[in-house]
Write a protein that binds this DNA or RNA. Sequence first.
RNA 1: GCGGGUGUAGCUCAGGGGUUAGAGCGCCUCACUGUGGCUGAGGAGGCCGUGGGUUCGAGACCCAUCAUCCGCC
Length: 390
Amino acid sequence: MMIFLDPLRALLGRLPRLEGLIMIAMSVRYELLATCPHTGARRGRLHTPHGTVETPAFMPVGTQGTVKTVGSEDLEAMGFELVLSNTYHLSLRPTSGLVERMGGLHKFMGWPGSILTDSGGYQVMSLSKYRKIEDEGVAFKSHLDGSALFLSPERSIQIQGELGVDISMALDVCPPYPCSRDEAAEAMRRTHIWAPRNLAAAREGQAVFGIVQGGVHEDLRRESAAFLSELPFAGFAIGGVSVGEPTEMQYPVVQLAAPLLPADKARYLMGVGHPQDILHAVGCGVDLFDCVLPTRMARHHVLYTLKGRVNAGAKRWAEHDGPVDEGSVFPATERYSAAYLRHLLKVGEFLGARLATLHNLSFYARLMAEIREAIMDGSWPELRARYQNA
RNA sequence: GCGGGUGUAGCUCAGGGGUUAGAGCGCCUCACUGUGGCUGAGGAGGCCGUGGGUUCGAGACCCAUCAUCCGCC
């Protein structure tokens, strides 16, 4: 694999905009405030053009420029400072050009906080039957109407620049699980070839995060972390996890990769996860998370509680005149009984999905707030105990 | 009151003499990880209205009865 590194470094050395890249990285800056006395957890701040993100932080997923069923005012009220959106989906509809003409994604969705966009790398996996990967980029056939969309690293970064987001993710190749070692190595190779091309395509002030690949293979993960760490990314992500692998295979990857990433930059674990997964990863030194679970589970009638997930559509709630989650009543949902929520969910009313989403996002917001607190005051073991059934 | 129809799973209904009675919806449990906006996988649940009869054998055929629907007085 080392055979790929030298030509890439040579290529990087010839990039005309390399000097500017150092400045670009400064538009997003990570500030370390404290480390946990019990684990490798880090308490920090991520400074972006749209404010400060207290870390560790969770990003609600807003693929189509909206966190499904909730508004930007709701996200603000729950205390979120950073949301995730998506290059592939927004470039199909309404197109990045339209968003740019409307003043950028922040203004378009009425969101004053920070935004990070996935590059389309995840769609390389999730929409695998609609695309073909080459070294030049990924040729998609739109899942909507079959029209062509070519995402190269340059194009993905350009689109994210037009969207005007705070953090652009590098286009990578996210392999599924299970996959052969050869597939994982090939995905990593392409991700590495593309890494400097992503950086070179960035506008002035556009922060780009690099993504570590390597599947479940220790040597590949080491190689990927080492390779990417030498590039002037504004932050680093661990990709290619939460793609179907069992928990016991995900944890060692995080444990290995997180500490290998530069300590002065933010570390982002993509697509994770369950509350337990987040607690584990924070303990390994991860600062940022995103996951569809709280929002998708809500639409599937499942609420997160400290006692575990609860099916809020179950019949046992039919005449329950109190909240589903007795222990934690969140402001957005406290006035509605479990009986009413169940009714809304069962008949498919939008409000049901919205209330469940508000509940789950509030749960995740509180989890992250308590994580940040526990790192500072040393109460990490107590926090782990509190969430052991969540 | 007369004539006709229908009674099978919580609901709507298949099955019209031959192993252990089925479907859709509903119900229950589990799954969902950088979102293709209610998906997927399992499971529970029936004295086939009631009582008699025919038959080796009845959810099915016969008689009675009850319930219910439609039409006519």
